[in-house]
Design a protein around this nucleic acid. Structure first.
Lengths: 160, 160
DNA sequence: GCATTTGACTTGATGCGTCAAGTTATCGTT
DNA sequence: AACGATAACTTGACGCATCAAGTCAAATGC
């Protein structure tokens, strides 16, 4: 677990780590900024709405939605409550199994996604894909997967 | 600004974006988890302590420290207040120019960094560098820089 | 040399995420 | 059919980040 002498980062690693750390700090902030400024929603709220909009009947179980949006059930519950207040979503117990709750997108909610999506995608493109070469895009996918795999094992998801 | 028809992400881009989004979500959480569990501090608090520990006299101006730790002055002010309460840091007006505040690491603060650093570095290594090839590490540095450059121009830092 | 401006913080209110503790509905067992 | 166990949420309290407004010290203009 702990060596006698820790292996510090060498110069190359340190530069890579610095670059990654900056990205971890600023990219989410930048994406949130765009959505907040143009649409008055957070990136997480966007993901929730987008998740519902992509499902066949515009509805999902809370647990499915939490998995999709990569957040805890508790967080999702709070967020959906706010989205419900804004009239974009409503919840009903699943008719097939009363333990589940289904979140439905309203028509207004659908409109909101349709309105928000192009700007968000454009921002992702501008900040992530435009600056990278094709090869780097592929590398990025592989790198991201390797890192999340390294994390993935112990705690697949928060909460619970 | 907005095209007639937005350019959606293609399959390759979508996979890369998914992998990146997961990393953005989970890597910071994983690093915070380790530091919180083993040392009772957040990653941002660690960065603040580490920043001070690396400076010649174990002190920096708040504004320098904010830049180093990649956070707003306001955020830093709150955090340093907490670190001060815990006895790891203290603040004094800069003797040379009373407008600046200097944050100093205490002996206990230094001990804390020495205690926390090896475990944190080991976690970064385990989650980021061990899973990657040498070539990917270099790519990661370049990719990170390109993305932060794309962001960088408009808002170098929050607050202010 | 006094007033204004600028810059470097500091503070308090607000909102969101997390954590621990509930609730409620079904399932398995007896 | 009753009982505990489990799974799927929901809720409330708490901590931290952000934002807007305030404070205070030096520089700047007149």
């Amino acid at each position: 677990m702990s060596d006698d002498e820790p292996r510090w980062l060498n110069t190359d690693e340190n530069e890579a780590w610095l670059a990654l750390a900056r990205t971890l700090m600023r990219l989410p902030a930048a994406l949130d900024t765009q959505l907040q400024r143009d649409q008055g929603i957070t990136h997480f709220e966007y993901q929730v709405l987008a998740g519902l909009s992509m499902s066949p009947e515009h509805n999902l179980r809370m647990s499915e939605l939490a998995l999709f949006a990569d957040g805890s059930l508790s967080r999702l519950s709070h967020v959906v409550k706010r989205l419900e207040r804004r009239g974009w979503v409503y919840r009903t117990p699943d008719p097939d199994d009363g333990r589940y709750t289904r979140a439905f997108l309203t028509d207004d909610g659908w409109q909101k996604v349709v309105e928000a999506a192009p700007g968000h995608v454009a921002e992702v493109r501008r900040l992530v894909f435009d600056p990278l070469t094709k090869a780097q895009q592929k590398q990025l996918r592989d790198i991201g997967r390797r890192i999340t795999n390294a994390i993935g094992a112990e705690d697949t998801c928060p909460d619970q």
